[in-house]
Amino acid sequence: RAAQGRAYGNLGNTYYLLGNFGKAVKSHQERLEIAKEFGDKSAERRACSNLGNACVFLGEFAMAAEYYKRTLHLARLLKDKAIEAQACYSLGNTYTLLQDYEKAIEYHLKHLLIAQELADRIGEGRACWSLGNAYTALGNHEQAVHFAERHFDISKEIGDRS
């Protein structure tokens, strides 16, 4: 049963990389069930991340957000800050796709705080870029320019010309 779980995970990843997102979701859902049977929280977290990603490419944004929220909960349980940051970033982007900019800002700010805590300048730059865009979408140009300037400074610092 444990090997079956791993095989479903690998199948899900392969379908995903082949662009067959429907089959990827089915495989990762099986992987998730087996992870739960074993109480394997890391595997459960991985399955939720992979499911969220596949749902994004199926255009199932609300479902993706639910899987990413489960990922976030499990990342906190596992005390994995990097995964917690990644889940917040995914949620911020997914809420942008859902055009819920207030929620997008909420998660991008959470991502920004963790990126700062982890001294992850690339992550911080991406959070500022995303926040600038979300505030622009809301018409809050003061906050938008604030984050655009921070994004600009960080990009210069890390030598990201694009």
Binding site: N10, N13, N50, F57, T96, R126, N133, T136
Partner: peptide, 26 residues
């Protein structure tokens, strides 16, 4: 409005490009 929409999604598009190759291994 169209231009605003494009500006608003560029960071999301970059995220999706990275996401497309992100499969967490067993």
């Amino acid at each position: 409005v169209q231009r605003m929409h494009l500006i608003q999604v560029d960071s999301v598009q970059r995220w999706m490009e990275d996401l497309r190759l992100m499969a967490e291994c067993e």
